[in-house]
Design a protein around this nucleic acid. Sequence first.
DNA 1: TCAGAAATGGACTATAAATTCTATTTTTCT
DNA 2: AGAAAAATAGAATTTATAGTCCATTTCTGA
Lengths: 270, 270
Amino acid sequence: MEDRAPASIKQFEERLIDVSESLPKRLRQCAEYVAANKDRIAVSTVAEMAEGAGVQPSAFMRFCRILGFSGFSEMQRLFRESYAGGWPDYSTRLKNLREKAEGSASALLGEFVDAGRASLENLLKTIDAKTLDDAAEALAKAQMIHIIGLRRSFPVASYISYAFEKMNVPAMLHSGVGGLDNHNAIRTGDVLLAVTFSPYSAETVDMVEAVSARGIPVVALTDTIVSPLRKFEAITLSVSEVDFGAFRSLSATLCLAIVLSVAVGTKRSE
Amino acid sequence: MEDRAPASIKQFEERLIDVSESLPKRLRQCAEYVAANKDRIAVSTVAEMAEGAGVQPSAFMRFCRILGFSGFSEMQRLFRESYAGGWPDYSTRLKNLREKAEGSASALLGEFVDAGRASLENLLKTIDAKTLDDAAEALAKAQMIHIIGLRRSFPVASYISYAFEKMNVPAMLHSGVGGLDNHNAIRTGDVLLAVTFSPYSAETVDMVEAVSARGIPVVALTDTIVSPLRKFEAITLSVSEVDFGAFRSLSATLCLAIVLSVAVGTKRSE
DNA sequence: TCAGAAATGGACTATAAATTCTATTTTTCT
DNA sequence: AGAAAAATAGAATTTATAGTCCATTTCTGA
């Protein structure tokens, strides 16, 4: 109605406070219910919200418009979108990019920076603190940490390896140089840290399988929960990167990698 | 279909893992997308989920039924009911994490995520579009791209190497395995891409010096402008990472690395 | 290599939800 | 207290979205 619709949750809240002074009975009920149940807006229908507030749906609609929205849907959209942060859908953006900026390097940079930031936020939201701690604990107890990660995961593995080295944590990077697999270097008391992402490299999965069968603990860094490493009894940390096109930046993965490394380093020196 | 619908998120996840072993292509895409974006289910439509997974809505519906639901709505209901809302927002979450989890692995995670985000933002602000384009241009013209980056920079170098491989760009990673330096593999018409950060590894600097003396173009990825690579006539891209403690996450560097790789890949295929 | 089965894409339909409209009630002001 | 204005409830309408169906493609096993 009056001016333009709130563009952020913050603006929405301000607006709500402004307005709620001078509201007739039913609309005030709406305001109060909404204030107390902001999180329900994203997942409810007008009918449900109206019932919650004890008013008719049409009253709730009027309330939405007083707040500056064209209707309930527009208000709901604000909440749905701001949940989980900006979720630009990258397939559309990639298409636009191809058409418009024609792959100019700096346009690409913007996209990848965005993807990276979204991934990091997502990591913070989805990682399970308990699992992370368990993983660090298991690795800290190891006599020697064996690290494996091939192809796309190799940068991560080598990064972890470097970090451990710097912190004097005994670690061995299994890089598969020369086609050697060095399974025998892994001994009782050691722990395997496996990094693998879709498409999961067979060597890594094989090593986890072999090692796991021998009762050696495995910590896995992987994407999503449907990774093939689930089958084995590994402590699994899953990270999902926001892809941009066919390319995956490793921001979140590396962040988790360094956190894990530092946590292990700290625990060991205690 | 089979038995009854999952009654909790936990059951849902188990079911997802169970089922995901034996799934045809499109349905697997659904499983993967869902696994990585569980939080979107509550606030999206089938069409949106399907698009995210890269499948047709009808395929996504089939997926819901395989999981045991009567349709998308029933599955969504499960998530809407247990939807806790992503609030409070990112910065508040971060603050809580720091204060509460003090010293634990998850507190570390907060710090590194923050450092990573800051680095990415900073990258966007400081990178010079022209230089970035020049670098991509130079690399795109190369007959072969030689990549060097040792120690801390090695993950970056190997990441770039992987990306080039994926895009069919002829590239060679000089990893120094076996103490070989392979200077002679670098020929007229090639370009060297050197990655180095303080403390700058002597091998890298030496290689840049030698190669540069032969008139071969060099693109450098380094920190700050006082890096020793400045002396040579290299196209220099500098990234500064925000450190946390003594540790440096490579978020910004890797982001720049992938941008450069993709830009080169795109230019070459034009 | 071919036949049968499974999987897929896309158009079509049914349904549930948002939105609008209007008669009725409540409030406000003189 | 009575008329005008505002607010409300509920039904009617429109729109968006889930869900269905079937022709076509893609796998699978003989």
